[in-house]
Amino acid sequence: MHWLVRRSIESFLRETYSDQFWLRVCQRSGDDALQRYVYDRHSIDLISDAARFLDKPEDDLLEDLGAWIARRRRVRRLLRFSGRNFPDFLLNLEMLADRVRMVMPDFFMPRVQVFEDGADCLRIDFPPDGHDWACCMAGLIRCMADDYGALGLIWIGENSVTVQISDGSFAPGRRFLLGGDEEAAR
């Protein structure tokens, strides 16, 4: 698993639940093998175990993970670079995989396609086995809708996410300064 995925899952579980919870997820195969084991494991197995311990559907946990990632200040800024407004952001998700590859050539992220799906409706299509990505992306999109101050309804399909944009500028949204440090600028 890519170190960044592992670090995201670890930080997400530690911050959202607790350090103990993260250790419990790691320790599944016994104390002794803990260290080696967790580095070799597939990220999705970590999510499965965590979801089972929490008695929560895996899809929901992935969606939470996506939202948590988008709430990181640095990530949020990088995502805001992708579009001037929420619809623009959604359309430009097609470029996200290329952007990621440009910064981290060894990180695989599936390419998505964005289609207009009726009035004010956009559908983001993932490759055939992209359901986990779709769940995670749905959480991320939900969080970014807030950030842009847009109102959107989001459905997760088998390998797609559909977003109905009711209002592109529902609330003022959070400030985004190219030069950074919105907190200080407030």
Partner: peptide, 17 residues
């Protein structure tokens, strides 16, 4: 600017990792 910030963020995460 995107690359500039992304590099910073990733290097930081990598060193924490």
């Amino acid at each position: 600017l995107f690359l500039h910030e992304a590099n910073h963020g990733i290097l930081r995460e990598l060193s924490l990792f």
